[in-house]
Every structure is written in structure tokens, then in C-alpha cells.
Simulated scan of single mutants.
Amino acid sequence: MQQQRKIEVCLTPALLPLYNIENSIVIVIDIFRATSSICYGIDNGAEAIIPVATVEECIALKDDICLLAAERDGKVVEGFDFGNSPFSYTTEKVKGKTIVLTTTNGTHAIDESKKTAYQVIIGSFLNVDAVCDYLKTQDKDVFLLCAGWKNKFNLEDTLFAGAVVSRLKDGNYFQDDSSTAAEDLYQLAKHDLGAYTAKTSHSERLKLLGIEEDIKFCLQENITQTIPVLKGNKLVKMVF
């Protein structure tokens, strides 16, 4: 008899040391905006995206081939090609390119999870069904890692985690309490994600920067079928 798989939601990377993820497929979530932009960029033909934790690491990998992308507190770091707006990851800008990326939250979550995870993939509303369809075919535990905001809880990442739980819950998974709570939040929000996420602190931060269109874009469901997967130090398109 097949052992029952777990589905767990980690509400912030600060809680990651409390979990054993050696048998888990980790889905890193940073809806506003890193993982949404990564999914969009890989779908639009980026050769690879190299996530790094710090601006210094990003600069150290500079060469004539790579584009450099750095974001802190929602803003592009001065001197870099772009930040983590999905509108910077269009086909015209990224096709065939390798991008070195550092962000406030998302790349930190990737950096922490890759140390012990069985596999790390990238999730967003843009590819939610593709991610769930893949997870259904695997015999591993599912671990939804919310990047949060500077190691604190945030609402939008938890909503996405709940969206995944709601799509997988009939698959005989053991759910932890945080996955149940995340799904309950998603059920409240799913009919109008825009209105619900308008309550979020990060949404307010982005609005103050005048980038409301990024928020709308990142809440679109299933506009890509690509799943970025971490291979070594690079995020690349998963090949089935």
C-alpha cells in the first residue's frame, strides 16, 4: 500500500528549520512578484534564471552574456538591467538570455529551501494548474513555501498555497493545519482575488510605487504552462 503523502504549508522561510523536506517537492511562492516573473520569463524563452540571495552575489556573476536583475523593497536596485516586474520578462527582453536575479523575498526562499529539498520548483497563479498537474503525478510530499515579506507572514503567498491545496486535497494527502488554513483563505478569496489581495500590505507598497498593473498581472490564472525547476544553481524549464 502506498504511503500517504503530506501536503504542508510553511508560512514564512523563518519557519523552514522546523520542517524535514528531504522527501518533498518544494514549491517556492512569491506572488508579488518574483515567482510570477520567473514563471513568465521562463515561459517566454529565457534560457535560465539564476536566483541569488544578495545583491553582491548578483554583481559577482556579471558578464557580457547575463542580464542582471535586482529588487529591494519593491524597487529596482540602481545600476541593474531590471527588477522583478513581470513586464520586464517579455519575450523581446529575455528570449535566449540568462538572467541573474536577486529579490527581497523570493530568492531568499529559494536559497534556503534548496539546501535540503528533494526538488525545488516555482509556483504562481500564472502556472497554478500546470504545477498541480505535475504534483499529482509524483510520489513525493508537497511543501508549499511562502516567501512572505522579510521572513514575516503575507497574505498573497498563503492564498496561492491554498489554491494548490484546494486542487490536491482529493489526492489522499495528509494536510497540516497551515495547509487547511491556507485553503480556507483561498475559498474566501477565489471569486475576486484582486479585491481580497487589495487588503495586503505588499499590495499597498506596490501601489505607492505606482505599479498596480503588476498586481493585476500576477493574479491571472493559467496564462503559462511552464514550470521552472531548479537544476544546480539555475532555474530552467521543466522538460517532461
Rank of each mutant, 00 (worst) to 15 (best):
M1G: 14
Q2Y: 15
Q4I: 15
Q4N: 14
K6D: 08
E8H: 10
V9A: 06
C10M: 04
L11G: 02
T12I: 07
P13S: 05
A14G: 12
A14K: 15
P17S: 13
Y19A: 01
Y19K: 04
N20K: 11
N23A: 13
I25T: 09
I25W: 01
I25N: 00
I27K: 00
V28P: 00
D30N: 02
F32E: 00
A34E: 01
T35E: 00
S37E: 05
Y40Q: 10
G41L: 03
I42R: 00
I42E: 01
D43I: 00
N44R: 06
E47P: 12
A48E: 12
I49T: 05
P51T: 05
E57L: 07
L61D: 02
D63I: 14
D63Q: 09
D64A: 13
L67M: 15
A70L: 10
K75Y: 14
V77G: 05
E78I: 03
D81R: 10
D81F: 08
D81M: 14
P86Q: 06
F87V: 08
T91S: 13
T91P: 05
K93T: 11
G96Y: 08
G96E: 06
G96I: 05
I99P: 08
I99W: 12
T102G: 09
T104L: 06
N105R: 08
N105S: 11
T107N: 03
A109M: 11
I110K: 01
I110E: 01
S113C: 10
K115A: 10
K115Y: 05
K115V: 13
A117T: 00
Y118S: 10
Q119N: 06
S124V: 04
F125W: 03
N127P: 06
V128A: 11
A130L: 09
C132N: 03
D133C: 13
D133M: 13
Y134N: 03
T137D: 12
T137N: 14
D139I: 14
K140F: 07
K140Q: 09
D141E: 09
D141M: 03
C146E: 02
C146K: 04
G148D: 09
F153G: 01
F153M: 03
A161K: 02
G162I: 01
V164E: 00
V165I: 11
V165F: 05
S166Y: 14
L168S: 04
D170G: 15
D170S: 10
N172I: 08
Y173R: 04
Y173S: 04
F174A: 15
D176M: 08
S178I: 04
S179F: 02
S179M: 02
T180R: 12
T180F: 15
T180H: 12
A182P: 09
A182M: 08
A182W: 07
L185S: 11
L188S: 13
K190G: 04
H191Q: 15
D192V: 08
L193K: 01
Y196P: 06
T197R: 07
T197W: 01
A198I: 01
A198R: 12
K199Q: 11
T200C: 12
L208N: 15
L209E: 10
G210R: 12
E212S: 14
E212K: 11
D214H: 04
K216P: 06
F217V: 03
L219E: 03
Q220A: 10
T224G: 06
T224H: 12
T224K: 07
Q225F: 06
P228L: 01
V229G: 05
L230T: 02
K231W: 08
G232H: 06
K234V: 03
L235I: 04
V236A: 02
K237S: 09
F240C: 11
F240T: 13
